[in-house]
Simulated assay, not measured.
Amino acid sequence: MIERADQLVLEFVSKVADAAHGRMRPEQRLDFVRRVRERVDEERAGSEDAKAVARILARFGTPEQLVDREARRLAGQSGESPQTRVFPVDDAEPPRRRSTPTPPGVMHYRQEARRHLADRGGRKPSAFSRIRDAAMAGGNPMATDGKDAWSIFANNRRETIGLGLFVLAALLVPFRLPTVAIFPVPGLIWAVGAVVVLASEGWVFNDRLIGLSAPVAAYLFGGAGLALLRFQGDLPRFLIEFHGVSGVMFIIGTAAGVTWLIYRLFDPPPAPPSRTLRVTR
Rank of each mutant, 00 (worst) to 15 (best):
R158L: 09
K51E: 11
A191E: 04
Q83C: 05
G202F: 01
Q65T: 12
P95A: 07
R59K: 05
F238S: 01
L209Y: 04
A224W: 00
R264L: 05
R25H: 14
A135H: 03
V40T: 05
I262W: 09
A191Q: 05
A256M: 08
L229T: 10
P270T: 10
L168E: 11
G76Y: 11
P141S: 08
T160L: 12
G187D: 14
D267E: 04
L165A: 14
G225W: 07
P184M: 09
G244N: 13
A118I: 06
R85G: 05
M1L: 03
E241Q: 07
A271T: 01
L261G: 02
V245Y: 05
A194L: 05
V258W: 06
L261M: 15
W203D: 04
R176G: 06
L220S: 12
P269W: 03
R96S: 12
I2W: 04
L239E: 11
D148N: 14
R120T: 15
G193D: 02
D68K: 07
L10D: 11
G233K: 04
L212I: 14
V180K: 05
I131Q: 07
V53Q: 00
L229S: 03
S47K: 10
S274N: 04
D145H: 02
R59S: 14
V185N: 06
L66M: 15
P103I: 15
R97I: 06
A17T: 03
F166D: 01
S14I: 07
R158W: 07
I161Y: 13
D234T: 11
R4L: 06
G244Q: 15
S78E: 14
V204S: 12
N156E: 13
P273S: 08
S274G: 11
G121S: 02
L209Q: 12
L57Q: 12
L277V: 11
D119T: 07
D148G: 06
E27G: 07
T62K: 08
F205E: 08
R34H: 12
P82S: 12
S151W: 02
P26G: 13
R85N: 15
W260C: 06
I262G: 04
R130K: 12
E42F: 10
R55G: 13
N140G: 08
K147P: 07
F128G: 13
V197G: 05
F205H: 08
D267S: 12
P63A: 10
G193V: 06
D207L: 03
L188I: 13
H116C: 03
L8Q: 09
V33G: 01
T100D: 13
I251L: 09
F231P: 05
L235R: 13
A135E: 10
L66W: 02
G105P: 00
V13P: 00
N206G: 10
F32L: 04
I2N: 09
W203V: 02
F250E: 03
I210Q: 07
Y263G: 09
G79Y: 00
S81Y: 11
F32N: 00
D91K: 10
A214H: 00
L10H: 06
A169N: 05
G79D: 10
L188P: 00
E93N: 11
R123Y: 10
D119S: 15
P178S: 13
T179N: 11
S14G: 10
A194N: 01
V195M: 12
R85K: 09
V16Y: 02
V195N: 07
G253Y: 01
M249R: 01
F32G: 00
